[in-house]
């Protein structure tokens, strides 16, 4: 049994979509977080336009609470690809009093990113943002179109989505609107890992088992860092872990694991019945957490 055939179908489809974005919009940008999905996106963009260069810049909304390994990896990859990387900082939005740092045990900068992102879109005049979101991640994501039209407040109105037929992508928008485009919509977490293996892509080291100082909280393991507000019940332990999804250090939980190669990660994920989104503390706030953030312009 080979996984290659459907991976190939997915790749062809994603390249088609990325090319449409480059052609239909004046000023597209690829949102790059340094995680495995955006690394996959970067690779697909490279393949879509080779031998020409990727015709759009990358934008990173930096929460300031990133894993240092991710940032190091990001800069190296940008050098290799020769693309322009633009970084906008959540810290700047905080300093400008546009958002307030959350407080308490579960304080995270994850939802604050929205304001920084919307400001960056306005400042730099982007009309399309390519993102690595997948429909299998979460059930409100499952409702997204490939071209998702947002108003100038970045809002997503699920009831007003345009019908999207066949592979015909309508990127026509009115002044002030912009589009979030999701070329890997139809990929699952397993597809991404299999593709990374097939294409021999490099990933930040935190995706593989390593020893780390962790905070055990509510049954989950969070990376110990100065960004995390510790409470009395937290337990600090040294643990061999890996991360299945990489977001803000304060809201991404690790899995105890000894899988230190792509192959063993794939095997272990398959055996586990949990989804990667289960490691996102911010989504656990409520059943509707992600939809509510998206309505407010979240990516």
């Amino acid at each position: 049994m080979s996984v290659q055939k459907h991976l190939q179908t997915l790749e062809e489809e994603s390249i088609y979509i990325i090319r449409e974005v480059a052609a239909q919009f004046q000023k597209p940008v690829l949102l790059f977080s340094g995680g495995k999905d955006s690394i996959t996106m970067a690779h697909l963009a490279k393949k879509a336009f080779y031998p020409a260069k990727i015709p759009f810049p990358f934008l990173h909304i930096d929460t300031g609470h990133n894993f240092p390994e991710t940032i190091e990896f990001r800069d190296k990859l940008m050098d290799e690809l020769g693309v322009e990387l633009i970084v906008r900082y959540v810290q700047d939005s905080i300093d400008q009093n546009k958002v307030k740092e959350e407080t308490g045990k579960y304080a995270s900068r994850n939802s604050l990113q929205t304001v920084t992102l919307l400001d960056a879109i306005e400042e730099l005049g982007y009309d399309a943002c390519l993102g690595g979101a997948r429909r299998d991640e979460e059930k409100s994501r499952a409702k997204e179109r490939i071209f998702s039209v947002r108003d100038d407040f970045g809002q997503w109105d699920a009831k007003m989505q345009r019908p999207e037929l066949f592979q015909i992508l309508n990127g026509k928008i009115n002044f002030g609107e912009n589009v979030r485009a999701f070329p890997i919509s139809n990929w699952t977490e397993e597809d991404v890992w299999n593709y990374i293996e097939r294409e021999e892509l490099e990933l930040p080291s935190i995706y593989f088992a390593h020893e780390r100082k962790m905070v055990k909280r509510d049954g989950s393991y969070l990376a110990h860092s100065s960004y995390l507000n510790l409470v009395e019940s937290d337990e600090i332990v040294d643990k061999i872990v890996r991360f299945r999804t990489v977001g803000d250090m304060t809201c991404t939980a690790a899995v105890p694991s000894t899988a230190d190669t792509i192959e063993s990660v794939i095997r272990e994920n398959k055996a586990s019945k949990s989804s990667e989104r289960g490691a996102r503390i911010d989504d656990k706030r409520s059943e509707s957490a992600l939809e509510l953030r998206k309505k407010g312009g979240y990516f």
């Binding site: 049994m1 429909r135 299998d136 499952a142 409702k143 009831k159 989505q161 139809n186 699952t188 397993e190």
Partner: peptide
């Protein structure tokens, strides 16, 4: 209300 995409695989 809207189309949801669901992904699953068997053997």
């Amino acid at each position: 209300i809207d189309v949801a995409h669901i992904y699953f695989s068997t053997q």
